[in-house]
């Protein structure tokens, strides 16, 4: 049986930087969104930060970067789709409302 290393691995040390990046994205994103006027650029920024933060958690905290396969693709897809749907709902609200309206006769 291999003896576990007593000192932190590079992956463990990387967590510190990732935490700082996630905190920075949260603080910076919130400040920017609170001060800027609502618009497509702000919405795009919100969607991008959502996707980046999700990807960091999936790849490094959940360690799925090291395991290519269906599970990795599924989780990554979630964080492509949700930001995309957020943007689409913002841009095409009328069309989505029309598609999701029940027609009563």
């Amino acid at each position: 049986m291999a003896t576990p290393s007593s000192s932190p691995t590079a992956a463990e040390r990387r967590l510190n930087l990732l935490w700082l990046a996630l905190v920075g994205l949260t603080l910076g994103g919130t400040l920017l969104v609170e001060r800027a006027n609502p618009g497509v650029a702000v919405t795009l920024f919100i969607c991008l930060t959502m996707a980046i933060k999700g990807r960091l958690i999936i790849d490094y905290f959940m360690e799925l970067k090291a395991f290519p396969g269906r599970l990795q693709r599924l989780f990554r897809l979630y964080f492509y789709l949700l930001p995309l749907l957020t943007l689409c709902t913002w841009l095409f609200a009328d069309q989505i409302a029309a598609m999701t309206t029940l027609i009563t006769r």
Partner: peptide, 13 residues
């Protein structure tokens, strides 16, 4: 992960 979507959708957008 769920909260990382809830926060921008509810509080920011």
């Amino acid at each position: 992960l769920a909260w990382l979507i809830i926060f921008p959708l509810i509080y920011l957008l």
